[in-house]
Every structure is written in structure tokens, then in C-alpha cells.
Write a protein that binds this DNA or RNA. Structure first.
Lengths: 214, 214
DNA sequence: TTCGTCATGTAATGGGTTACATGATTAC
DNA sequence: GTAATCATGTAACCCATTACATGACGAA
């Protein structure tokens, strides 16, 4: 119960894991750094934060720097800063490792991928492979549907489907490359299976070996 | 007012324009033939149909074969067949030609494209070009955001953004090809600017000249 | 006769947006 | 001092889904 917003909740926990923040900043990071995949409004963010606090995963810190003007640069004059609790951290790890049936959908996957820098290698592999097989299912359905309906569709509809399939195929190739790169990486990544006692595991710097952005 | 479901409404009108159907079949066509971009459930379809009827865009035909058991094969026992009214047809034309600010978003565009076979050439061009410039805006934002945040992001996040941008760039190229093909096509397409009195204008068969699916 | 599919709906819920209301702080 | 932006929230709504309820029809 109180199943507040899968993706938003996940993204908030993930961002707060890196460092405490207040709502406003959180929303900006959601929509810029991580925002490639989705934009959220205050109308969803603030209620979500409340339930996360109620759940014990976050604590509000009203940041009473009332008498410490020592570092005025850190924040203008701290509003409500949210910090991840130990329980929240654990919960986030669970969400990361969780392999529900919807975990491989577009937005869920993108959100998980965005936090790969904080994810252990075995989980990364599971996510990438899960996503890939999800896409392959999708491809098969598309192919089947296409074979069934064939000639009944006009050329534009056909072209639309062709382009859609090509996009999916392209993502599969992308995943293949990522998976291979992961495989080629150091195999010693084991920061505690199930318990991330090591907190951050960037032993390889989280490098997907991007091949020439330009 | 009564601004029921943009895309669903549009798709329903578009499908019914081709031929009358009952809800169940409509939903299947929505999720197979046209369903590449989105799946709808009865929970949204039936209420939508009702409002469209209330609006005067559809009429329910209970298919009164009440006393003619002559052809029990035609329909098992006629359900509720929805047929587009003249007003509905007009409304659909308006929706097709309408260039609202959200008309170029992913799903809106896909839905419009799916009905290109029933769309006049000038509208097709407007839609394709609108979509393209929308994507170009998006690209600029992404580039700006990327330039701003640069080194602050880990490699996975960067890779995600890079892949996202590549996808958008790819779609832009696709649009460029489509636009060129349209331009190269016969230029005489003028079934009445603003008024589609000609109903169907497939003079060129609606051919986007797909270049080798394999 | 029972099972699968066709066929139509409704109520509760979900997960989000928009528009609104409010006020502090900074830049000019 | 006034405008922009930072900052936090709420209420009303939107569009859709899920799960449920119902029933006819055809095939095994």
C-alpha cells in the first residue's frame, strides 16, 4: 500500500543517495541531468517526498544554520533538505536489484541505467540482459503482427512500423555492445551480493567505454 | 470542454473513418494494426465512445437484424456498431489539420502519421516539418544541458544521454528522407485546402518510398 | 457442459499535470 | 523597489489502467 510513484520515488532516492538536497534542486536535477527521460512537476514531487519521509526512507532537515553564516556559499539559506536514511538506502538497493516484470520497460530501464554508476556489476548485467530480452519479445510481436496484417496496411502505416522496429533493433545492438563491454571489464566486482556495505563501487569508474561521441 | 482523450479520440475517429466497427474490434485494431505506438484498454475505449456519440461525431447502430435470422454469419448477433457522422468526419479533418503546440509530441505525431494515407499532401508536409523542428529544439536543449553539466556526470549517464541524442538525430534523418520523398512526389495534390471535400486523396497511393526494409 | 473468445461495460485507483497561492532572496 | 528566480506547497482535474461484473456464442 501507499505505492507512490515507481519511477519518481526511485529517481528521488537515487539522487538523494549521492547527496542531500531540497525539493527545488531535486526537481531540476530530475529534469536536466537525469531529465532526458522524463520531466516531473512540483505537484508530484512534493507529495512524493512526503510519503517517502512517512515511510522512513528520508528525513527532513530544516537545516538550522540560523547561527552559522560560516559557509554562505553552500546553500543560500537552507530550506528543507532531504537526506536518505539507512533504511532508505537499503530500500533503494532493493529497488535496484528487484527484477519485476515491468522493470524492463522504457522509463524504468532508463531510470535504472541512470544510476548504473552506483550499481554493482552483476546487477548491471541483469538489468541490461533483462532489457534486451524484453526488447526481443517486443520485436517478435511486431514481426508476427506485421506478418499477419501485411498487405492490409497502407504504405505509411507500414513505414511507421518499419521505423519503429528499426529503432528497437538499434537499441538491441546498443545493449549488446554495453553487455560485451561489461563482460570485458574486471570480473572482481563483488561489493557484497545483496548488501551494499561498500556503498559505492566505482572500481572501474563505471565506464561503458563509449565509442567516440563525436 | 469535455476534452476527452486527445490521442484515443483521434485514433477512434480515424479508424471509424475507414469503416464502421464495434468497440471490441476497434480496440484490437488500435493495439495491432495501429498499436505499435500505444495500447488502450476497454476502460478507456468505451467511455470515450460514449462521449464521442454524445458529441454527435459517432452514431451507435444497434444493427437491427431483430427479425432477420437470414444471415446469422454476418455478425453473431449485431452488437453496437459505431459509424462516423458527417460532423465526425469534419471534426477529424480539423484534428488532422490542427497544429497545436503539442501536436508534434511523440504519440501525437505517431497517431497522425498512422493516418497519412487519408491525409492531404500539404498537411502531411506540415506535420512532418513540425515534427522535425520539434525534434531539433529538443536536440538543442540536450546539447545545451550536456555542455553545461559535462564532467559532472558519470560515464553511464553520459552514455545514456548520448544514446538518446543519437536516437533523436536518427529520427530527424528519417524525417528528412520522408520530406524529400514527399517533395519529389506529384505536386498537384490539392483536394481543397482546408476542406477535404474529396474525402480520400490517395492519388499517389500514399507511398513513402521505403528504402529496403532488410 | 465447460472453456475460450467475443462483447460491453463500471468503480476504484493510479500517477501524474495545471493552475493556483504564498513568500523569501537576489540582481538590477 | 521591483522583477526574476528560488522555494514550498495544495486542489482540481486528466487520462488512463486494473479488477471486477455480466453475458452470449461456438467449439471440444
Amino acid at each position: 500500500m501507499s505505492k507512490r510513484s515507481g519511477i519518481l520515488e526511485f529517481a528521488v532516492l537515487g539522487l538523494l543517495r549521492e547527496s542531500p538536497m531540497h525539493g527545488y534542486e531535486l526537481r531540476k536535477r530530475l529534469n536536466t541531468s537525469l531529465g532526458v527521460f522524463r520531466a516531473f512537476s512540483y505537484g508530484s514531487l512534493y507529495p512524493c517526498l512526503k510519503t517517502l519521509v512517512a515511510q522512513g526512507w528520508l528525513i527532513e532537515e530544516t537545516a538550522p544554520d540560523s547561527d552559522s553564516p560560516a559557509t554562505p556559499l553552500a546553500g543560500r539559506r537552507a530550506k528543507i533538505v532531504y537526506r536518505l536514511t539507512a533504511a532508505g538506502k537499503e530500500h533503494f538497493e532493493e529497488l535496484l536489484a528487484h527484477s519485476g516484470p515491468d522493470a524492463w520497460e522504457d522509463e524504468h530501464f532508463a531510470a535504472r541505467f541512470a544510476f548504473f554508476g552506483q550499481t554493482s556489476k552483476d546487477v548491471r548485467m541483469r538489468v541490461l540482459e533483462g532489457r534486451r530480452s524484453r526488447l526481443e519479445e517486443r520485436l517478435e510481436k511486431m514481426r508476427a503482427s506485421l506478418a499477419r496484417t501485411r498487405e492490409r496496411l497502407d504504405d505509411y502505416t507500414l513505414e511507421l512500423q518499419r521505423h519503429g522496429m528499426e529503432s528497437v533493433e538499434r537499441e538491441v545492438r546498443w545493449l549488446n555492445e554495453l553487455i560485451e563491454t561489461e563482460r570485458a571489464g574486471r570480473t572482481d566486482n563483488r561489493p557484497g551480493t545483496g548488501r551494499a556495505d561498500n556503498d559505492n563501487n566505482q572500481e572501474n569508474g563505471g565506464r561503458p567505454e563509449s565509442r567516440g561521441t563525436a
